[in-house]
Design a protein around this nucleic acid. Structure first.
Length: 545
DNA sequence: ACCGTCGGCGCC
DNA sequence: AAAGGGCGCCGACGGT
């Protein structure tokens, strides 16, 4: 059963539909009654259908209405519009309409429903039917349906995680800052430890006015001191022997902490003991999530010590070990690679299989194969990786060749890559332009090579989240509200954090592993690939792993 | 004062 | 011959 929600002038129209999206039964619900109405209908676990989870779900959560299944029509539309599998359908070939536009900004998302739209909201029932028609005529409707369900459940989880918040000890964070940077300075001033390091740098470079915050000026200052540099990137600095380099690298480290996760960040993003980032499901072309403020997906290790569980609670932190190589093994059907992954550590498994000598070689070689790297260690390992895992390597090579030729590639479940925008250079004009044209094609090939793996890994992660949130909900305690149950609080591409009452931690850890196995089965059926997790139960995120 | 781009670096 | 994928965010900078 589906229930589609849509705003009208004086309420919400809820349309119940059967599994074929037929036999509509409409009712009008007052916005104030919506949460209790949804909670009551949720007993039948319908699939709620709406235009934008980030708009509909937070107010429901605020009222204590948790739902199990949804379809986010806007997210689904974006996938179906670009998917090769639905390219010839009416949905994909029609001119752009309001469903293709970004979701309108509609007031503070955590506020209760405000009466809506000046213009009528688009009809979700019509869009649902259009989408279903497109999927039915696609080559592999099962996979697309799974993708749309996974994308939508991700949006539910994103809203739930923002609602719950990541426990964050602001005092502990401030203490970390004070220890590394010195006391909080006045606005615009440098913290004491940065000033001290800067004084050293200026003295060692004999440049008393040097402003290291300006890359251009810093580069000139370093060159004036005779250092052979073309940029001020830290990896380039590390290649050079000079007494000013060590303090300069330290300055950059501190400056980064200050600007990205310093006191201003703390003021802006942490309140009442919670960090509430705003996730953007599907925000990355590959299907990974993005964030929209708060930088949750770049949370540096330096400040993870501030992530402390509530009293009587703890964290279960799980990280999918070598997710992308495992996904590649499964989607390419490379049995040798799957065997290497049977060891908990896939890279160690590669060593044990005799493909390479050391774990480091395995890691760099594998990542190079997925990213298209050819230099350094990954380039040196390439022939061995190709010999050991020819099936997997042919798979990513095919994706690269497709991209170079301007073709679209797709993930396992059918999310397709964007079309390559016309090359800047015309290979017919000159030798130099021809070379630049080949460089551009090669760069796009690296993108498509990575797209199929990163995108499929993102699909696995969505399935993992979906399976986990269902399993966690079933853990109980019976009849408890969402705030008393084990629940997801953080997601980082291949890592999840559950905040749980201490007594549920072992069960939550087991649910993590079971959900990872669910995700593998959902995507790849009986493929002999194991998705190993490293799981730790810790009160402080910094202690994970 | 505001806006878009760039250099640099954090995460995966 | 050479070739590392995806992001977000900050301050600086150069333009209007």
């Amino acid at each position: 059963m589906f229930i589609a929600l849509r705003y009208v002038a004086d309420g919400v129209v809820a349309t119940e539909l059967d599994d074929e999206a037929k036999r509509p039964r409409m009712s009008v619900v007052r916005p104030d009654d919506l949460a209790s109405w949804v909670a009551e209908r949720e007993a039948a676990t319908p699939r709620w259908v709406w235009d934008d989870t980030a708009h509909w779900y937070p107010p429901l959560l605020a009222e204590g209405a948790r739902i199990e299944r949804a379809l986010d029509l806007r997210l689904c539309r974006r996938i179906l519009r670009h998917a090769t599998a639905t390219a010839r359908t009416a949905l994909a070939t029609a001119p752009a309409d309001e469903w293709d536009a970004p979701a309108p900004v509609r007031g503070a998302s955590d506020a209760l429903f405000e009466l809506e739209p000046v213009t009528a909201a688009p009809d979700p029932v019509a869009e649902l039917r259009n989408q279903r028609t497109a999927i039915e005529t696609a080559e592999s409707p099962g996979r697309l349906n799974l993708l749309l369900a996974a994308e939508s459940v991700g949006a539910l989880a994103a809203a739930e995680m923002r609602h719950a918040g990541l426990p964050w000890d602001a005092d502990r964070h401030a203490a970390i800052l004070t220890e590394l940077l010195g006391p909080r300075p006045l606005p615009g001033a440098r913290p004491a430890h940065m000033e001290a390091v800067l004084a050293q740098i200026r003295a060692l470079l004999d440049d008393p006015e040097l402003n290291p915050d300006s890359p251009a000026e810093l580069l000139r200052g370093l060159q004036r001191a005779g250092l052979p540099l073309t940029s001020t990137r830290s990896w380039e600095l590390k290649e050079i022997e000079h007494p000013a380099i060590a303090p300069l690298l330290e300055y950059k480290r501190l400056a980064r902490l200050l600007t990205a996760n310093g006191w201003n960040w703390l003021d802006q993003w942490v309140s009442e003991g919670r960090f509430r980032p705003s996730y953007v499901p599907g925000g990355v072309v590959t299907g990974r999530w993005a964030t929209d403020g708060g930088g949750a997906l770049q949370l540096p290790k330096q400040v993870r010590g501030a992530v402390i569980a509530d009293p009587g609670w703890t964290f279960v932190v799980a990280d999918a070990a070598q997710l992308e190589p495992r996904v590649l093994a499964a989607m390419s059907g490379d049995a040798a690679m799957a065997r290497a992954g049977r060891a908990t550590d896939l890279y160690q498994g590669m060593v044990d299989a005799g493909a390479v000598e050391t774990r480091t070689q395995a890691k760099y070689g594998m990542l190079g194969a997925i990213y298209g790297g050819t230099t350094g260690e990954s380039g040196r390992m390439r022939p061995r990786i190709e010999r050991a895992f020819p099936v997997a390597m042919r798979f990513v090579e095919d994706a690269a060749r497709a991209g170079e030729a301007g073709r679209v590639v797709s993930t396992w479940l059918g999310r397709s890559s964007p079309h390559r925008t016309a090359g800047t250079y015309d290979e017919g004009t000159s030798e130099a332009d021809a070379r630049r044209s080949r460089t551009e094609a090669a760069a796009w090939g690296r993108f498509t090579r990575n797209f199929v793996v990163q995108g499929t890994a993102a699909e696995w992660a969505l399935c993992w989240i979906g399976a986990l949130r269902r399993r966690l909900w079933e853990l109980g305690p019976e009849g408890a509200g969402a705030a008393e149950r084990p629940h997801l609080v953080f997601f980082l591409h291949d890592e999840l954090i559950v905040h749980t009452p201490v007594e549920f931690a072992p069960l939550a850890a087991e649910a993590m592993r079971a959900a990872a196995a669910d995700a593998g089965r959902l995507l790849f059926g009986g493929a002999p690939v194991e998705f190993a997790l490293s799981v730790s139960i810790v009160e402080n995120y910094a202690d994970a792993r």
